[in-house]
């Protein structure tokens, strides 16, 4: 067992335990912390597979953006003097069914999509990504930009709706 597999195992344990905390914690702020741990571990996986750019973007977008907004929302929720907001109803059976179905779908979809060797078809550095985005993938890249612009305009319209 070499060092790389030890790091991989540690990342896996951190990711899984973060996920478990997210699912089973009753305290919402603990859930957010569990989710944060999980997201950091995913960024670690990206870096482990050599996709450093993706790993950093994962940190930037999901930790610095999404998770901060989630904690922001939690802080604005009314909280009782003796504790933080907790999840009262769980819908355990339905949640397990949905999660299981999604897991089945993702695994079936990925089985055909993932190449045999992990080195194949993975663009790692920013230079390769740049070539891909401004070369063969230019249309997709621009379409993504247009979609995001449309989303931004929609948000402005929805939020500004009351003022007119």
């Amino acid at each position: 067992m070499n060092l790389e597999s030890v790091i991989f195992a540690i990342l896996g344990i951190v990711a899984v335990s973060g996920g478990i905390v997210t699912v089973f914690a009753r305290d919402v702020s603990r859930m957010a912390m569990g989710l944060g741990t999980f997201l950091v571990a995913v960024a670690g996986f990206f870096v482990y597979w050599g996709a450093t750019f993706l790993g950093i973007v994962q940190l930037f977008v999901y930790i610095g953006g999404v998770l901060v907004l989630m904690i922001f929302a939690i802080m604005l929720v009314h909280r009782s003097p003796d504790g933080s907001p907790t999840i009262e109803t769980r819908h355990d059976v339905a949640a397990i069914a949905v999660a299981g179905g999604l897991f089945f779908l993702v695994v079936t979809a990925l089985r055909g999509a993932v190449p045999d060797s992990v080195d194949q078809g993975i663009t790692s550095g920013p230079a390769e990504l740049n070539e891909a985005f401004l070369g063969p993938m230019l249309t997709h890249f621009e379409m993504g930009g247009v979609l995001l612009l449309a989303v931004l305009v929609a948000v402005v319209v929805i939020l500004g709706g009351d003022e007119r």
């Binding site: 944060g36 950091v40 950093i56 973007v57 940190l59 930037f60 930790i63 610095g64 953006g65 998770l67 901060v68 904690i71 922001f72 802080m75």
Partner: peptide, 11 residues
């Protein structure tokens, strides 16, 4: 990106 994590600590 990395210093952005410290926002979480502040929150």
């Amino acid at each position: 990106a990395v210093p952005a994590i410290s926002v979480i600590g502040v929150l």
